[in-house]
């Protein structure tokens, strides 16, 4: 008993010294698992789970879950156009911005579909389904071939057509000179 009290006292003492207020519950990796299950994916591929998918499989899912909002082949209406019908230019109206002409990272597609799509029943797909949808959209946009399989390793390596157009806002660059785009 004394040992437990001493250990607890030591723990609280260390805790207070470390944090300051000793408020907030320390978490274990196991407890964080449910958060990792909805990963925040980064351009390096960090956060991407295991799995893979190809465009043909993706089209089957797309036709069922996505076409109602984004058009039979990603042409948009009533919601955003996903498949570009022209390269980016200053004359391109915003409703024609799409994956193939405006999105700078392929990893964003996986992240956003996984966390926010379909609109009314999001974050319910398994990783393979998300990879397949990403593969379908990349293929429709002419970024990969129709038979290319997409997985964590290949997704991070895909160079998007719009990426060279992007830069860090010059003002932000002044305020935070260390910031670079991935």
């Amino acid at each position: 008993m004394v040992r437990i009290v001493l250990a607890l006292g030591l723990f609280l003492g260390l805790w207070a010294a470390a944090g300051g207020y000793g408020i907030g519950l320390p978490l274990t990796d196991e407890q964080l698992a449910s958060y990792e299950a909805l990963p925040i994916v980064r351009p390096s591929g960090a956060g991407l789970p295991e799995g893979e998918g190809d465009p043909a499989t993706g089209f089957e899912i797309y036709a069922f879950d996505c076409a109602g909002c984004h058009g039979p082949n990603g042409e948009g209406a009533p919601f955003d156009r996903l498949v570009a019908d022209a390269p980016f230019s200053l004359d391109l109206p915003p409703h024609r911005f799409a994956v193939g002409n405006y999105w700078p990272y392929a990893t964003t597609l996986w992240d956003y579909i996984n966390r926010a799509m379909p609109f009314a029943s999001p974050h319910n797909m398994d990783p393979d389904e998300v990879y397949a949808l990403v593969a379908y959209l990349l293929a429709e946009n002419g970024i990969i071939d129709a038979d290319t399989v997409v997985n964590a390793e290949t997704l991070a390596r895909i160079r998007m057509p719009a990426r060279p157009l992007y830069r860090v806002d010059p003002l932000t660059r002044q305020l935070f000179p260390w910031i670079e785009l991935p």
């Binding site: 200053l90 992007y166 830069r167 806002d169 010059p170 932000t172």
Partner: peptide, 11 residues
């Protein structure tokens, strides 16, 4: 206007 796309336009 020059066709560049700025990311992190925060302020």
């Amino acid at each position: 206007a020059d066709g560049r796309i700025d990311a992190f336009t925060w302020v």
